[in-house]
């Protein structure tokens, strides 16, 4: 802090900023009567808009009162760190996880839902990754070259296929969802994956290998011995990933 700023000036600035965060009217010097509330209103309007745009499914899941209380308490007690307001909503996730036990008990999928919604924003806005120059033609004998702007989400709730309002603890399980930014349209795409295809993509990525070489492991882990049937099952999936821009293909 600069030595130039006197304690009283500092205190006046702190009081105003605190008021914008908590809405409790402070004793500030020489303010015009009836005007201060505009700052709280405008500031909280910015925060509410940024959070509501980022988390429409969560807004829909919670009651209006729950949502308002959540974001009021977040903005009051959490010290928002990101200077870019569109990134600020990411900070709500950790805050809610650590500080909202009642909500997370009532909605066991709340934190996962917030993460799920944030992922869409993150992927839409993320800096461009360098795409590999090579591509895949032969789905069986070549290593699949993946879009680097992608990831497999390992979910405990079926957020990608079911309205969050109708999800309950009984839906708890293991679900896989592929998220990626399409290179031509820049749209973010979610694609549900079976455990086998989630494993296959991960194995190809991690092992830098191809399906042909993975056959012994596939037989061992999944008990699949009919290779022709396997080819018939994988080929349409490969074609879809190529068409969607998840696999970089020369086809």
């Amino acid at each position: 802090m600069s030595h130039a700023l006197h304690n009283d000036t500092l205190e006046q600035q702190r009081l105003l900023a605190k008021y914008c965060r908590d809405g409790v009217e402070p004793q500030l010097k020489d303010v015009t009567k009836g005007r201060l509330h505009n700052y709280r209103r405008l500031v909280f309007g910015v925060v509410r808009e940024a959070l509501s745009i980022t988390y429409p499914l969560t807004v829909n899941l919670l009651t209006a009162k729950e949502w308002t209380v959540l974001i009021q308490e977040f903005f009051e007690s959490h010290h928002c760190q990101d200077p870019q307001v569109w990134k600020m909503p990411f900070e709500l996730i950790e805050y809610a996880e650590k500080n909202q036990p009642v909500l997370t008990k009532k909605y066991p999928h709340l934190i996962e839902l917030l993460n799920f919604e944030w992922k869409e924003v993150e992927y839409y806005m993320m800096p461009d990754e360098a795409f590999p120059k090579e591509s895949t033609t032969d789905f069986w004998n070549e290593r699949w070259v993946f879009n680097p702007e992608s990831e497999i989400l390992n979910l405990s709730y079926p957020l990608h296929v079911k309205n969050a309002r109708f999800i309950s603890i009984t839906d708890r399980g293991q679900y896989f969802c592929l998220i990626f930014r399409q290179p031509k349209t820049f749209k973010v795409k979610f694609l549900g994956l079976s455990p086998f295809f989630a494993w296959l993509i991960t194995a190809i990525q991690n092992g830098q290998t191809n399906i042909s070489d993975l056959l012994p492991t596939i037989k061992l882990q999944f008990g699949i011995t009919d290779v022709e049937q396997l080819k018939q099952n994988i080929h349409p999936f490969f074609n879809k990933l190529c068409a969607d821009g998840m696999i970089i293909s020369s086809k």
Partner: peptide, 8 residues
Amino acid sequence: CDNAHIYD
């Protein structure tokens, strides 16, 4: 202020 962005 106080290590918290206000966004206005």
